[in-house]
Amino acid sequence: MSIPDRNLECGHSLEELSTYLDTGDIPDPHHLAECPDCQAALASLRNLKVLGTEFLGEEIAAAGKGTDDWMQAILDNLRLEVRPGRTIPLRPEHPGDTLSETEGAITALVRAVGDSIPGIAVGKCRLRGDVTVPGAPVTVEVQLAVLYGHPMLGRADELREHLAAALARHTELNVAAIDLAVSDVLQPRPATPPTPEEPQP
């Protein structure tokens, strides 16, 4: 057995070795280099560290991916609670009722539409104008990160068309303009195959 309970026969404590493993500091480095007891105990602790890393890897894999439903549910709750944004009125059928949408729901919609187009990821998204006043002109500003090698020409028009349709369907905003700006060009990772092209409508 290379690991005793507390202190090694050479008189050094296992606590010192455990700390050395984390910080690289030990009161007597020369002793450590030459003491077989210390070296054996250290090797045992290092094996444990490696096994712990393997354990963590399995646990992360078991916890799932960032694209799984549990993560989506958490992000949905965050959107709901942390950043509802302004209140965008909807026309009530019955006088006295107050119907509305949150700005956060609309920016999330914009993001979902953008993300559905291959090679594009939506970054910042802003609704400019007084969205709280029915009929006030609103400009939708969207920043895009574009995957390198994906032609943007055509994509921008496609996205603008999709966004206009989604906003007309799900809001009563008076959308005066949709401004798209490319803020980043992303280099694909070698390991990640490029997103396949989808047939144009």
């Binding site: 646990e59 993560m71 958490i74 970054g123 910042k124």
Partner: peptide, 20 residues
Amino acid sequence: DGDTAAFEALARRYGPQMRA
């Protein structure tokens, strides 16, 4: 800077380890 999409990308990246 208030970019929620960037924050969500970070959340997706490290969420599994946070959960584990």
